[in-house]
C-alpha cells in the first residue's frame, strides 16, 4: 500500500519501492521510532489508534499536496497502529524527486502535515500512569490549511 495504516510491523523496503522512478535522483526515507524518554519521563510502550478510513484519505491528501508543490515527486506513507514498544517503527515516509534538496524538503513537509491533519493518536504508558497525547504542535485545529512552512521549524 502506498498510503496506509498497518497493524503489523511496517516493511520499510516496500514503502521505498513505491516511490522508485526513473526520473528520481534521490529518495529520502523518514523512519519515526518510539522514544523512551520524553522530557525526562520514561515511556514503557505506546498505543497508536487511528480513524483508519479518514487517516488514509488524509495521507493521500498529503501525497497530493507534495506532488503539487514539488515537481516530479512521488510519495508513500505508512503509519503503524496498535501497541508499540520502545525503538519500534511508528511511521515510514518515502519521497523521491529528481533532485535531492526537494526530496529532503518534501519529506519534512510530510511528517509535519501528519502531525496536523491525520487522525492518529498515541497513548503513552509510563510506570505511574497513562495518557492520550494531543496537540504536539500546540495548536488546536487545522482544517484544510495550506502548506504551513512556518511550522517546519517548530
Amino acid at each position: 500500500m502506498k498510503f496506509g495504516i498497518s497493524k503489523e510491523p511496517i516493511n520499510i523496503q516496500e514503502v521505498i519501492d513505491h516511490v522508485v522512478q526513473r526520473n528520481a535522483g534521490a529518495i529520502t526515507t523518514f523512519i519515526g521510532t518510539v522514544r523512551e524518554l520524553t522530557k525526562g519521563k520514561k515511556t514503557l510502550f505506546l498505543i497508536y489508534e487511528a480513524y483508519e478510513s479518514m487517516a488514509i484519505k488524509k495521507l493521500e491528501q498529503i501525497g497530493t499536496e507534495i506532488r503539487e508543490r514539488w515537481q516530479g515527486a512521488e510519495v508513500a506513507i505508512v503509519h503503524r497502529v496498535g501497541k508499540l514498544d520502545i525503538t519500534d517503527v511508528a511511521v515510514v515516509i518515502a519521497v523521491s524527486t529528481p533532485h535531492r534538496a526537494d526530496a529532503y524538503e518534501a519529506n519534512r513537509y510530510a511528517i509535519e502535515r501528519i502531525k496536523e491533519i491525520v487522525p492518529i493518536w498515541k497513548k503513552e504508558h509510563w510506570e505511574d500512569g497513562q495518557e492520550w497525547i494531543g496537540d504536539q504542535l500546540e495548536k488546536v485545529s487545522y482544517p484544510e490549511g495550506k502548506p504551513e512552512a512556518k511550522h517546519l521549524d517548530e
Binding site: 519515526g32 497508536y48 487511528a50 480513524y51 478510513s53 479518514m54 487517516a55 484519505k57 503509519h79 511508528a90 511511521v91 511528517i111 501528519i114 502531525k115 496536523e116 491533519i117 491525520v118 487522525p119 492518529i120 493518536w121 498515541k122 492520550w132 497525547i133 494531543g134 496537540d135 504536539q136 495548536k139 488546536v140 482544517p143 484544510e144
Partner: peptide, 25 residues
C-alpha cells in the same frame, strides 16, 4: 471523513467524528 466547521449542518445518514488534537508520527 472530511474536516467540517462548527456552522456546517448535518444531514441524514452523515457520519460525524470528533477528532481530538492528533498525535501521530
Amino acid at each position: 471523513e472530511e474536516f467540517a466547521e462548527d456552522d456546517d449542518v448535518i444531514q441524514e445518514g452523515d457520519t460525524i467524528a470528533f477528532i481530538p488534537p492528533v498525535s501521530g508520527g
